[in-house]
């Protein structure tokens, strides 16, 4: 990558227990989660190194207790790491003081929470304007800005309501609006849609994708829902027992799960929906291709009819600009669509 990553975690550890720092200092390599637990410590985050590029959407996926929420709290320094460092745009935030941290949050970061975390005594408008108020903006500016974001999330007309007068989905829109009020560069979302019912969740995911497209922020998105992860992510980091099992694009994870644990998730996924032509394209290496190209961004399922009717063994794959980026094996694609031949 040419540019410095927006967020960079280097060997981040978070241990819970009596004196975690001392314990970590004396910790031998290779002790796993259960070993550590036997020593009386709980490993929230275990030696995690991961980069998030500018404008990238990283989804951290894991079941409850896997450490995903702890990891994102290390990135935003809502909790202090036990070891390692977290860089935000090249600056190690584990060592900055309180004033610097507050300043960082006031300018750079926004966060959305699972149960919304709205202040019950404030109206929608005052909740959204809260971060602006904290950094001391005057009433008028913050009101104007808050109205802008409220419009952005489609809550216009509700700005004088109190949170308890809104539905769950609307409350989370307030949460989203609040996190965007300061125009953060980095956007954390901690299971933002998990508390919502399935239909609303779907609607909010679409809404989220729309905002993402529009705002182009660096995003860390936490979820326990693998389908949600596949649907939204540029890259997925799958966590278990505080460590990252695999971190890759959805296509690659589905095609080549790194561990048995990851396989458990990918097994039940309809791969043809997830895998795109791009992931199957092999470099040309001078091979000559012929005929019409297929779009890199289309999923195997979308290509199904063509794959069945096609006579060519190798199909050229072209990106948005029309440039051919490689060749896709028809057989391989058909295997994904129909399952490997017995």
């Amino acid at each position: 990558m040419s540019e410095a990553p927006a967020i960079s975690c280097r060997n981040v550890w978070k241990l819970f227990g009596q004196s975690p720092a001392a314990y970590l200092a004396g910790l031998e390599k290779g002790r796993d989660f259960d070993d550590i637990r036997r020593d009386g410590y709980i490993a929230g985050v275990r030696d995690v190194s991961v980069d998030v590029a500018k404008g990238e959407l990283l989804v951290v996926m894991g079941l409850s207790g896997s450490g995903k929420s702890t990891l994102v709290r290390c990135m935003s320094r809502l909790i202090d790491v036990t070891g390692g460092e977290v860089q935000i745009e090249g600056r190690d935030i584990t060592r900055i003081n309180e004033a610097e941290l507050i300043d960082l949050r006031r300018r750079k970061m926004g966060m959305v929470f699972q149960s919304f975390g709205l202040l019950p005594n404030r109206t929608v408008l005052d909740n959204v304007a809260f971060p602006l108020e904290m950094r001391g903006q005057d009433r008028h500016t913050r009101r104007d800005r808050a109205m802008e974001v409220i419009k952005l999330v489609g809550l216009e007309g509700r700005e004088d309501y109190y949170p308890r007068e809104l539905s769950g989905g609307q409350q989370q829109r307030v949460g989203i609006a609040r996190s965007l009020a300061i125009e953060p560069d980095i956007w954390f979302l901690d299971e933002p849609f998990s508390a919502l019912d399935p239909l609303i969740r779907r609607e909010m995911q679409d809404e989220f994708l729309r905002l993402r497209e529009m705002l182009g922020k660096t995003i860390v998105f936490i979820t326990h829902d693998f389908d949600e992860a596949l649907r939204l992510a540029d890259r997925i980091a799958i966590m278990k027992d505080g460590a990252i099992e695999q971190c890759d694009t959805p296509d690659k994870i589905v095609l080549h799960p790194a561990t048995p644990y990851v396989t458990k998730f990918t097994e039940v996924v309809e791969k043809s929906r997830v895998v795109h032509a791009r992931a199957l394209a092999r470099p040309l290496n001078g091979t000559v291709f012929e005929g019409a190209t297929v779009a890199a961004g289309s999923s195997v399922l979308q290509l199904a009819r063509q794959l069945v009717n096609e006579t060519r063994e190798q199909l050229p794959v072209a990106d948005k600009s029309g440039k051919v980026i490689g060749l896709m094996s028809r057989q391989e694609a058909l295997d994904i669509l129909l399952g490997a031949a017995p």
Binding site: R73, S76, L78, I102, D103, L104, R105, R106, R107, M109, G110, M111, F113, Q114, S115, F116, G117, L118, L119, P120, N121, R122, F130, P131, E133, M134, R135, G175, R178, S179, I182, F188
Partner: peptide
């Protein structure tokens, strides 16, 4: 989560007490 929301909004300790905890 309300506490964390307050912190992520860049509240100082006094602001946390006054605007987040007490209400």
């Amino acid at each position: 989560e309300v506490i964390e929301a307050g912190q992520m909004s860049g509240s100082t300790r006094w602001q946390m007490l006054r605007h987040v905890y007490l209400p």
